[in-house]
Amino acid sequence: MNLHICEVTPSNWRAVAALEVSPNQQQFIESNAYSLAESMYEENGTSVGLYDGDTLVGYAMYGWYSEIGKSVWLDRFMIDHSFQGKGYAKRFLVLLIEHLQQIYQCEKIYLSLHPDNNLAMKIYESFGFRLTGENDDNGPVVGVVMELLINKEI
């Protein structure tokens, strides 16, 4: 595997927009087309494609850094349905956490997810994310907020 993260550009945005989760997961996350538009028109959002070599397998959107809280949002993260079940989610989550730490030198990473998305919640919990007790209702999908505290001694 040659996993890497590439910004969405005029040459790959259509392929990123075409990625989809499985039909039984669609209520859990906004479409990539919606997310791409959000990252284009809301300040501070960055959209990236998740690649294995030349193959696009997923999408993520991050940003909204807070200097006061030394925090950043991993606002979207998905693996296309045809690549699910192959370990990509965990491997890319490692890369994304490292990527966000390098860019922002953050102490906290926030994300939100649909409260019924049990599989995603288990994956995030295995990385140390914990529920904050807050809700995120800034988009069409209302989610529960999770937080990862970054151990600076690692």
Rank of each mutant, 00 (worst) to 15 (best):
M1A: 12
N2K: 11
L3T: 00
L3V: 06
L3G: 01
L3K: 00
L3C: 02
I5R: 01
E7D: 11
E7G: 07
V8E: 06
T9S: 15
T9L: 04
P10L: 07
V16Y: 06
A17G: 06
A18V: 06
S22P: 00
Q25M: 07
Q26G: 02
Q27P: 00
Q27S: 14
F28I: 01
F28T: 00
I29S: 03
S31I: 07
S31Y: 11
Y34L: 14
L36K: 06
L36E: 08
Y41Q: 08
E42N: 13
E42Q: 13
N44F: 12
G45K: 10
T46H: 14
T46W: 01
S47I: 01
G49L: 05
Y51W: 11
Y51V: 04
D52S: 14
D54L: 12
Y62S: 02
Y62C: 03
Y62A: 03
G63N: 08
G63L: 10
W64L: 09
S66L: 01
S66I: 02
E67S: 10
G69C: 07
K70V: 02
K70A: 12
S71V: 01
V72C: 09
W73M: 05
D75E: 12
D75S: 15
R76K: 12
F77L: 13
D80T: 01
F83R: 01
Q84W: 05
Q84M: 05
G85M: 10
G87K: 08
G87C: 09
G87A: 09
A89L: 04
A89Y: 02
R91W: 00
R91A: 13
R91Q: 15
F92G: 08
F92W: 07
F92K: 06
F92E: 10
L93K: 03
V94F: 12
L95R: 09
L95S: 02
L96A: 05
H99S: 03
H99E: 14
H99T: 02
L100N: 04
L100I: 07
Q101R: 15
I103D: 08
Y104M: 05
K108M: 08
Y110D: 05
H114I: 09
H114W: 12
P115Q: 14
N118Y: 13
N118K: 11
N118P: 00
N118V: 08
L119W: 08
M121H: 12
M121W: 05
I123Y: 06
Y124L: 08
Y124D: 06
S126K: 11
F129I: 09
R130C: 11
R130P: 00
T132Q: 10
G133V: 09
E134C: 10
N135Q: 14
N135H: 09
N135V: 13
D137K: 13
D137H: 12
D137W: 05
N138S: 15
N138P: 00
N138V: 04
G139F: 10
P140N: 15
P140S: 13
V141L: 10
V141A: 12
V142D: 13
G143D: 09
G143K: 05
V145H: 06
M146S: 07
M146T: 09
E147C: 14
L148K: 07
L149D: 12
N151D: 15
K152N: 09
I154H: 10
